[in-house]
Design a protein around this nucleic acid. Structure first.
Lengths: 136, 136, 136, 136
DNA sequence: GTGGTCTAGACCACT
DNA sequence: GTGGTCTAGACCACC
């Protein structure tokens, strides 16, 4: 269900956070679904349970999951009025810029880059309003 | 010329590296231009000279600038056959996915996201071949 | 395990890099083996820990070892398709020429020189393909 | 006659030293030949004359050329009893080892490496004694 | 003047 | 405990 790359530069707990957000974004996990317990997941991934716990805390902080005392954690309802928390949006745009710059120096053409992003958006993107067909 | 964010999680030397790559990508710095000396920049940014030196070494390692002993550093000629170093390209695509997922959870629509990226590409992107008109 | 020459012109961190590459080339260190921690080695060699850290970062950059946050560094799997990075190969051939010239001026005969190199190759060389007998 | 690479890591004065030693090793310059004056060469290479002067000092120190007051410098007679200055020979062998190790990590096979060195030796090597035919 | 290296000592994030 | 980053201040080689 989740793949961890021990040798990646990105911290393991972050990888876990991202993995869950990915599963949710592509619809493999839906609102109300139970996510595995800390112990279960740590056993399965062969990593320290503190690392998993840290990931879950982060997921909860971001409002992606919600723990219910003694019952485990569940995928939360997506924020009604989508946060648009300014700071994180600003950060996201900065990352878009960074990637554009990086691609430039790697010799990747604009066309190619936009296409790649298009693919990802198609899989993980959020369709704006159901009333607008053929978005993206 | 360069802005440093002391409170950012991304290390100062990385910020410097990115800033120069940005200036080059958008054409504000061109091949052969001299970049400020280590001491000059460190004085200007009010940071330690070693931090700047580390950034410059990284830029040199990436082939973005070339230093000449006792003379300073200059913007290098972009690699003729731009590596397309597989590992870094793979990483870049992973970042695109991560951003798509992130945006989903922030409630940002696909359309909006693609538009934002389009803006960045327009500023920093690399036009594929000069012989193809109206590209970008 | 590693010997540092304080008085050499070649920087300490470079000596460390070379020492590890030597240990790996001759098989004393193998894929997956743990290498000493930064602090451990710096204490043992009586040098500053930053110097060791710099060496380790260089080794990681070259893909010789891989560090894992909070766990230490390990000998990496040799690149499957060894880059044959053109620039570095070109440089290596230039060094071979330089040594031939140097030997000439030191009055070292061709035969002697080739023999010496043969010895080193035997210890540190890479056998081409296991399926080709009598290689080396 | 001499090519300088401004952007090389090896200092310019060293490049000059090596260039002369190369010319001598391959027979393009012979004992007694005059080498250009400091001013002449610095003008020709478009570099600072101090740099050329430093190179010439080094060549003289190594006994490769000999200056005659007011007349210029000439290629010296190769040391009768070839120095075999122990320290430099030791250093040369260390370089051979380093190259063997480097080649290993670059994925260069022993056979290939030995062949390359053979080529260089053929061009720049010193035949032991004229009485031994087909040496190398 | 330039960049490159090293030390000493500090703080932080990750496991 | 691990590696990663930063500062302060020093010395050196090159031009």
């Amino acid at each position: 269900m989740i793949q961890i790359n021990e040798r990646s530069m990105v911290p393991i707990y972050e990888q876990i956070v991202q993995a869950f957000k990915e599963l949710i974004a592509k619809g493999a996990l839906r609102e109300g679904d139970k996510i595995p317990s800390v112990r279960e997941l740590s056993a399965q991934l062969l990593i320290n349970h503190n690392t998993v716990a840290k990931a879950y805390q982060e997921l909860e902080r971001q409002g992606v999951v919600a723990s219910q005392r003694g019952k485990g954690a569940y995928v939360a309802k997506p924020a009604e009025e989508p946060g648009m928390e300014r700071e994180r949006v600003r950060q996201l745009r900065a990352e878009l810029r960074r990637i554009a710059v990086e691609a430039h120096h790697l010799g990747i053409g604009s066309r190619q880059l936009a296409d790649w992003f298009g693919e990802e958006i198609q899989r993980y993107g959020r369709d704006e309003h159901a009333d607008r067909p053929q978005s993206t």
